[in-house]
């Protein structure tokens, strides 16, 4: 499903500083799109506008032909699956119960066998079946992140929104999460939008990039075309060199 953002503005509170200023960009379907930019440029704020956690003061967001303004929260949850940076966990219970919450829009009051089967299938797909009866709050950072991905997959959405999913992870877990995100696109023909800081990870795993600076989109397009030394200098104020090291993708 194609997602387009048109002229959205957002600020926290009526008199708060404007975080997003007339942001316009497209997110292509069946691609991994990386939202890039320095801290405080509005990446997460925009991501939260996409699933209506934040409501823009002006502008519009369209999923295909449908405006976000016409969609109930339950409908948006069926379109956009959300993987936060971390979960407050609440009073989460076991991993099985925690992941089941992602299926809220499909659940009746009682849990049917097919619901349990669906959760078990996703846990198996992510190789975390052995965690099913563990308490979520007792898991390691990498395990928690995989469980969050599993919960988002239960939403069975068209678009998956990852908000800095690897910022607290070691390199092994970081790679695993990025591969999971890539797999959602390659194996299941869905779209992934990912707020990330690691430019090399973005170059390696993303197809498309939306590059932001100070509440605006500076560039958007094919990642290898838009993530250039010039753009990095302009956005981050850092001189870099992008080299082809003989791998599939270049490195910053």
């Amino acid at each position: 499903m194609r997602l387009s953002v048109s002229d959205i503005c957002f600020s926290y509170g009526k008199k708060g500083r404007e975080i997003l200023h007339k942001v316009t960009c497209d997110f292509p379907e069946n691609k991994v799109t990386a939202i890039l930019g320095p801290n405080g440029c509005g990446k997460t704020t925009m991501a939260k506008c996409i699933n209506k956690i934040n409501i823009p003061s002006s502008g519009d967001i369209h999923f295909g032909d449908r405006s976000i303004k016409d969609l109930e929260r339950g409908e948006i949850a069926k379109i956009v699956g959300y993987v936060p940076q971390f979960s407050s966990a609440g009073m989460a219970g076991t991993v099985m119960e925690f992941v089941m919450l992602g299926r809220r829009q499909f659940l009746g009051w009682g849990i049917k066998d097919e619901d349990i089967q669906a959760v078990a299938d996703v846990l198996e797909r992510l190789n975390i079946t052995e965690l099913s009866d563990k308490n979520y709050s007792e898991l390691s950072g990498g395990q928690k992140q995989k469980v969050l991905v599993a919960r988002a997959l239960m939403q069975d959405s068209e678009i998956y929104l990852f908000d800095e999913p690897t910022s607290n992870l070691d390199i092994k877990n970081e790679l695993e999460i990025m591969k999971l995100a890539r797999g959602i696109v390659d194996e299941h023909q869905k779209s992934v939008i990912m707020v990330v800081h690691d430019l090399n990870m973005a170059l390696h795993y993303a197809d498309y990039a939306v590059i932001m600076k100070a509440g605006n989109v500076v560039e958007h397009g094919d990642i290898k075309s838009v993530l250039t030394e010039k753009t990095i200098d302009e956005v981050y104020g850092v001189k870099t060199k992008i080299e082809d090291c003989g791998f599939v993708n270049p490195f910053v």
């Binding site: 939260k48 699933n51 209506k52 956690i53 929260r73 339950g74 409908e75 948006i76 949850a77 069926k78 956009v80 959300y82 936060p84 979960s87 407050s88 966990a89 609440g90 009073m91 989460a92 919450l101 992602g102 809220r104 829009q105 659940l107 009051w109 939403q155």
Partner: peptide
């Protein structure tokens, strides 16, 4: 409370996650 029990389960995750999972 029994009718809202699933929403109440999700509410314990906080505003952002509850909203993302479709709860008002």
């Amino acid at each position: 409370s029994m009718i809202l029990s699933w929403d109440l389960n999700i509410m314990t995750l906080g505003k952002d996650e509850a909203t993302a999972l479709g709860v008002n």
